[in-house]
Design a protein around this nucleic acid. Structure first.
Lengths: 164, 164
DNA sequence: AGTAAATCGTTGACATTTTCAATCATCCAT
DNA sequence: ATGGATGATTGAAAATGTCAACGATTTACT
């Protein structure tokens, strides 16, 4: 695997745009790093027939938190109907199962099968590699700082919904 | 100094999922904050009939950097054909114009009209407010840190394209 | 207990966004 | 000059996002 770091000599002609005012925008920087990371993530996960979406659902199902579909939807900022499709797919592959909620039988608790958990562990390792690659320019300490800042920014989030 | 936000009163039932391993993933945190920020951004920009996408294009057009469409596409991590549509729209509204490239007449340099620049300045103010809201939990110093880390992570980026 | 309102998952329709191949015009190297 | 690259554009196909409606439950109220 050759990591083609071209930045040395070439000085991409696009770099000039970094002088634009929008480069100072946190949302823009966030979007860009997220986009770059997604590519690497999806590339790594493709080996397991997963995408970021299904991977994150599988991650929640593998935890012992007994998440319901609705909780997943909210946590992942997805529409509940999207969760349905993702779980249908994972269930068809025998990676997760739906069980009725204990106190609320409308709800469905999604949990990973043994296979699902095993696949997740492998995928997780690949995802961690991808993350390392995406953040290669940062030291371990800086990665920690970055995560802390992101978490802190998110924590106070007053549950932003799209409407209203 | 422990800033124990949140858990006191509401304690959303979804918060339990934060214990999932995926919460430690930088890509996931990035995605989540980006999603939350986008909602606020788009909400703020709607007042000017702009979305994040058209806003960022307008931002580049307003700069004196004379970006071509291809440069915009690469800089914004968008497909060139998407840029076409965005600029068609902005041009129809009289906010930007296309001019043939100086050395390369295939290329088209996009620049804002006076109206476009004026609209951008207003929209920019609104976007800054939205950003402040999205990052309200961070101090000014922390916002600066966050931006620095994001920029640093992006700088070394070896121009990741989707296909190999 | 009985009823009305709210919630969960699901489905299906529709809009928006992404992705990609094909095309024309222009540029660049030989 | 000719052939191979590159920039913009178009259009089609696939993937995603959004939303309203529905049956099955739960919850709140009387």
């Amino acid at each position: 695997m050759t990591i083609d770091t071209g930045t040395g000599a070439g000085s991409n002609p696009v770099d000039k745009l970094e002088a634009a005012s929008i480069s100072a925008d946190a949302g823009f920087l966030l979007a860009k790093l997220h986009a770059a990371g997604s590519v690497l993530n999806n590339r790594a996960l493709a080996a397991f027939d997963l995408k970021e979406r299904s991977y994150s659902v599988l991650a929640l199902a593998t935890s012992d938190l007994e998440p319901t579909q609705r909780e997943m939807a909210e946590f992942l900022s997805l529409d509940p109907s999207q969760i349905v499709a993702l779980i249908d797919e994972l269930e068809k592959r025998g990676l997760v199962v739906r069980a009725p909620g204990k106190q609320d039988r409308r709800a469905k608790i999604v949990s990973a099968t043994a296979e699902g958990a095993a696949l997740f562990r492998q995928a997780e390792a690949a995802a961690e590699e991808a993350e390392a690659e995406a953040l290669a320019a940062l030291s371990a300490a800086e990665v920690g700082q970055l995560k802390d800042l992101l978490r802190k920014a998110l924590r106070a989030r007053t549950h932003v919904t799209k409407n209203e």
